[in-house]
Design a protein around this nucleic acid. Structure first.
Length: 329
DNA sequence: CGCGTTTGACCCGCGC
DNA sequence: GCGCGGGTCAAACGCG
């Protein structure tokens, strides 16, 4: 079935077999006694209920950020912790819909701040996502749809209101919002991430016993949606795909909650938000073009990220260069 | 009563 | 053109 991986491809979610490699049964890199290990056997025993926790932990690791932004790469050794790392592979968007599976060699997400009960992998998506332009297009389409609905209501039984400029429709060929997929290992489907969601649909997934749920941010005029589904191969694996960008702050953040959903203390809310939501497709494109000037990457970062002080520019540089090398043919 | 979930119907894009 | 599958809508329903 060629279409089976279509969705996964679109969002660069490492599905099925790839998921298996994302979640190795045994933590690599020694730690034979298992203490302090982030092996998933352990995690399975304690379900993840707080998505935000995945971003917390002892210290935020900026390698995660880089990866979350599509800068997945063999991490510099500085990023790695000495033990308790779980190696895995990560699907990387290298632009224009092309992607590559980065082997776990030296790219251990074990350096990520995983809580004992959670694991998380991320993959950013969508080629050439000019978000603003897309939004405009989408808005136009939305308007069209509303018009359509109105027409439907007005002239019931009359001519089919389908006559709405098909040419225009073609031109506005449906384009998705940039999406950001997280793969988590969890007992619960709907992970707490600080925002309020309203479920608006559920569909059976082909070749999977588990349905896909559709959620929409309940905040007015916020376009963000997310889809949640389980891997049929490992029911504990939950794939959460965010689409769009919140136009508001996390309600939890606004409330000043620090218990469940506050961003890591080392991470400004806005940055956290952007990390969660932002797409930097240009970034990977730039990488692909063999541009090795880190300033270019920084320039391509969203303002929130540009403002953010990366802990060590050198690290970022390492990351970027590594990525660049990794994407060489 | 307000808010969220459920669920069948509908729309649309895509492949054949 | 047709069928399939994904995504969305919206009425009905449940819950606090």
């Amino acid at each position: 079935m060629p279409g089976d991986h279509e969705e996964a491809d679109r969002y660069h979610i490492p599905f099925h077999d790839e998921l298996s490699s994302l979640f190795p049964q045994k933590p690599a890199g020694g730690d034979a006694n298992g203490t302090g290990s982030l092996g998933f056997d352990q995690q399975a025993e304690s379900p993840l209920v707080n998505f935000t926790d995945a971003f917390r932990g002892s210290n935020m690791d900026y390698g995660v950020i880089a990866r979350a932004l599509g800068l997945s790469c063999p991490a510099p050794s500085k990023f790695l912790r000495s033990s308790g790392t779980a190696s895995r592979e990560l699907m990387v968007d290298v632009g224009n819909g092309r992607k590559s599976l980065v082997p776990s060699l030296g790219c251990s997400l074990g350096a990520t701040p995983m809580t004992p009960n959670s694991s998380i992998s991320s993959s950013s998506t969508e080629a050439a996502g000019e978000e603003a332009a897309e939004r405009c297009k989408k808005d136009e389409k939305k308007q069209g749809e509303e018009q359509k609905k109105q027409a439907k209501g007005d002239e019931e039984g009359g001519d089919k209101p389908k006559t709405l400029s098909t040419a225009k429709k073609k031109a506005e060929k449906r384009q998705r919002e940039p999406a950001f997929a997280f793969v988590t290992k969890s007992e619960v489907d709907h992970l707490e991430d600080g925002y309020r969601w309203r479920k608006y649909g559920q569909k059976a997934v082909k070749n999977s016993p588990y349905p896909r749920s559709y959620y929409r941010c309940t905040t007015q005029k916020c376009p963000v949606k997310k889809r949640v589904e389980r891997s049929y191969q490992d029911p504990k694996i939950v794939v959460t795909t965010y689409e769009g960008k919140h136009t508001h702050q996390s309600p939890a953040a606004v409330r000043g909650s620090t218990h469940l959903v506050a961003p890591p203390t080392t991470m400004p809310v806005s940055f956290y938000h952007d990390l969660m939501m932002h797409q930097v497709p240009q970034l990977s494109n730039t990488c692909q073009q063999g541009n090795t000037n880190p300033n270019m990457y920084l320039a391509n970062l969203p303002p929130a990220l540009q403002q953010h002080q990366f802990p060590e520019y050198g690290l970022l540089q390492d990351v970027l260069f590594s990525f660049d090398h990794g994407s060489q043919p």
